[in-house]
């Protein structure tokens, strides 16, 4: 059990690290392709394409980690005025809603990946990229998000602080 837990954390943080590397890659790729172009040479179209894909990958790869960090903003209209007991119930209910939504998206995301493989779909841009290589992050990311929201349903801690603002 301890190993499973540690492996899970490694996956969660590893995905966030990958997202961070992709963010830095955005800068590197744009600078390189502009400089190469201005030297009169031909930058590969992969530079451009990789930035577009990186936007998609990094958003989904980092999203579960951000749930754990409580970094997804919400409006504290109701949560800041409720007494602690009511807040406890509401907050766990909201987290459960998030689990359901992420669960549905993970399940349908998996369907989408299988469909992409079955149909051998390609994403058609400067290159033809097999679609499943991209959509595969849907089931992974939304599953992990469901687990992370799940921790706020049953865990010791709840999602909402009851105070206005994010506590860091």
């Amino acid at each position: 059990m301890r190993y499973a837990q540690r492996g899970y954390l490694l996956l969660l943080n590893g995905m966030a690290l990958l997202a961070a590397i992709m963010l830095v890659w955005l800068m590197v790729a744009v600078v390189l392709s502009v400089v190469i172009r201005n030297l009169g040479l031909q930058p590969s179209a992969w530079f451009f394409l990789s930035t577009e894909y990186a936007m998609f990958y990094l958003t989904l790869l980092g999203a579960p980690w951000l749930v754990r960090q409580k970094g997804h903003v919400h409006i504290e209209l109701l949560t800041s005025v409720l007494p602690p007991a009511a807040l406890n119930i509401l907050s766990r209910g909201v987290s459960l809603l998030c689990v359901v939504v992420c669960g549905v998206l993970a399940w349908k995301g998996l369907d989408l990946v299988l469909l992409n493989i079955e149909r051998t779909d390609y994403d058609v841009r400067a290159f033809f990229v097999p679609k499943w290589i991209l959509t595969i992050v849907f089931p992974i990311s939304f599953s992990l998000m469901a687990i992370e929201f799940g921790r706020f349903v049953v865990g010791h801690e709840i999602l909402h602080s009851g105070e206005a603002g994010i506590k860091e």
Partner: peptide, 18 residues
Amino acid sequence: IFMAIGTPIALAFLAANV
């Protein structure tokens, strides 16, 4: 409604979208 009850904004959109 999703936003008012304190659902994270992104998830409120996703829930409404689903």
